[in-house]
Design a protein around this nucleic acid. Structure first.
Lengths: 155, 155
DNA sequence: TATTGTTATACTCTATAACTATA
DNA sequence: TATAGTTATAGAGTATAACAATA
């Protein structure tokens, strides 16, 4: 059995572009790019919205906890929180029990901003999936939820 | 009808973290991070592998065409191609009909490298989807193929 | 003049390391 | 001595703009 011209060695079970790894990487980049553009109108970057989402979920409140939850360096949380504080989206208060800790809380303004960004994400979702039948849309959502859970991402 | 405490205003049809936009963004980042680590053993970065995939697909051969296909700046293609040439993965030849154009072609070494990276992607795919029933795996692949096609990505 | 590739430069994002205050 | 937050610095990645060769 010989190699066909131009396929030496043969594709290992399908081309790179049809792998889940490639598809998630490229579609993820597009999704983030569109979301970046959408939330920019509110003076926000995706990671700043992500920090607000962590606070809304109530799974972390100190900056160190938030850094661990988001998988970023603590020094990055400083600048993200600085910006959110400037926008009036969060409050920073020293923990009275341990004055080294800064406890972050979403303000009403923060809740409003997060809701607006979430609405923007839903709008982008609709555009992204417009070519998808409802059943496939549902199956996609379910499958990504499973992958996210397995990867330790918020569900 | 009053707002429930801590949900003012209410979540617009589900939290941010359950949107397709958020899931694709975060899972895409993880996929790219894992792929980056995997291809690093071959001295490659994801975009360099992407360039090889474009050449293998035969949809572009000059650096300008490749830049347009990949959605990156032409100056970036220069450095990606420089590195691939150093590895012996591609050849750069002037187009005799238009000596401004550099025509890039995959060498045998390039085909081998691309095949190895593709195999690595398949291995990552398996790890990523190990919690997914075969039917769901198939549905996910089909849905992402549709999204990729609609977004103008390679299918 | 317009286009291809290249080089020079700058910008964004984010991490690491050093530092301060508190424990 | 260890930890939370902050600041200073550095590196990766990529774009924009200026430039050279060719059309």
């Amino acid at each position: 059995m010989k190699d066909v011209k131009g396929q030496s060695p043969a594709d290992p079970a399908g081309p790179l572009t049809s792998t889940l790894t490639f598809r998630l990487g490229t579609l993820g980049a597009i999704a983030t790019e569109r979301f970046t553009e959408a939330v920019q109108a509110h003076g926000l970057k995706p990671k700043q919205v992500g920090l607000m989402a962590v606070l809304a979920a109530g799974t972390a409140d100190s900056q160190q906890d938030i850094a661990r939850t988001m998988g970023v360096a603590p020094s990055l949380v400083v600048s993200l929180a600085d910006h959110l504080e400037t926008l009036g989206a969060i409050r920073r208060e020293r923990d009275p029990n341990d004055r080294r800790r800064q406890v972050l809380t979403l303000t009403d303004r923060g809740h409003t901003l997060l809701a607006e960004c979430t609405t923007a994400a839903h709008t982008l979702d609709a555009a992204l999936t417009e070519a998808l039948p409802p059943a496939a849309r549902q199956a996609l959502h379910q499958a990504l939820t499973t992958l996210a859970a397995q990867a330790g991402l918020p569900t």
